[in-house]
């Protein structure tokens, strides 16, 4: 039986979960932005050994489900490394690592899209390699990849409920708990859905704006 009262009550009950979802998205996304760039550079510069390791890692991560990776990182990798992070941090790192493999492809495409003549002009001016990257190539590549990074950030936001599998109480976790406490699940899950909708939708409009602004030139 649908109860409007439970529906409105669930709003404030879900807010702490929203905060967790938000934090996991932001921290995971930052990790994905930075690590993705590092992966892309390692492969582009062909750093020996590291680029093979990165290639293997990217292939592994792209061909297994995120859920498996979240479990694997929490139950297998952490004990191996001899650390015991909270479920939140373990899950967020797994999420960031997963998306880093996708953002690294995005960066790679962005770097490849910078015309060869930019490299050649840099060489003709004797600019050091490092400065060519930081002063010429990346400042042209990164604006082009911002919309794609934005899209991946929205995907990450929508995938954070997977962290529930290792016990992180995000929006969906909070909805599940609320439903269990009140013997009625539909109100809180509906509210959770609305949370995602209300936050994702304007974000995708924002990303589309970015696209219009950066991708054409």
């Amino acid at each position: 039986m649908w109860s409007w009262e439970l529906f409105w009550d669930s709003f404030s009950a879900l807010l702490p979960g929203l905060w967790i979802t938000f934090a996991a998205t932001v921290c995971g996304a930052l990790l994905a932005y930075v690590l993705g760039l590092v992966f892309a550079l390692i492969r582009q510069v062909r750093v020996p050994v590291l680029s093979q390791i990165t290639f293997g890692l990217v292939e592994f991560i792209r061909s297994t489900p995120l859920l498996v990776q979240i479990f694997f990182f929490y139950w297998v990798v952490q004990p191996w490394m001899g650390v015991q992070w909270s479920a939140f941090w373990s899950g967020t790192i797994a999420l960031g690592l997963h998306y880093a493999c996708y953002t690294s492809e995005v960066y790679r495409a962005g770097i490849d899209a910078v015309p060869k003549g930019q490299w050649e002009a840099s060489t003709a001016l004797s600019l050091p390699r490092r400065r060519t990257w930081t002063g010429v190539i990346l400042p042209q590549a990164i604006p082009r990849v911002l919309p794609a990074l934005g899209n991946y950030t929205i995907s990450m936001f929508k995938e954070t409920p997977l962290l529930l599998a290792i016990g992180v109480i995000d929006i969906v976790g909070a909805a599940k708990d609320f439903g269990a406490d009140h013997y009625s699940v539909e109100e809180a899950y509906t509210m959770a859905g609305i949370f995602f909708l209300v936050l994702s939708f304007p974000s995708s409009i924002l990303v589309r704006r970015l696209e219009r602004r950066f991708v054409k030139h």
Binding site: Q118, A124, L125, L127
Partner: peptide
């Protein structure tokens, strides 16, 4: 000791005219 001017100019589009010219003298 060698400079080159290309058919397609290859100016750096992320820099203004002055920065294009001062970049290498400053950095190199």
């Amino acid at each position: 000791r060698i400079g080159m001017v290309f058919q397609q100019f290859n100016l750096f589009p992320n820099m203004n005219v002055l920065q294009n010219i001062t970049e290498a003298p400053i950095r190199v």
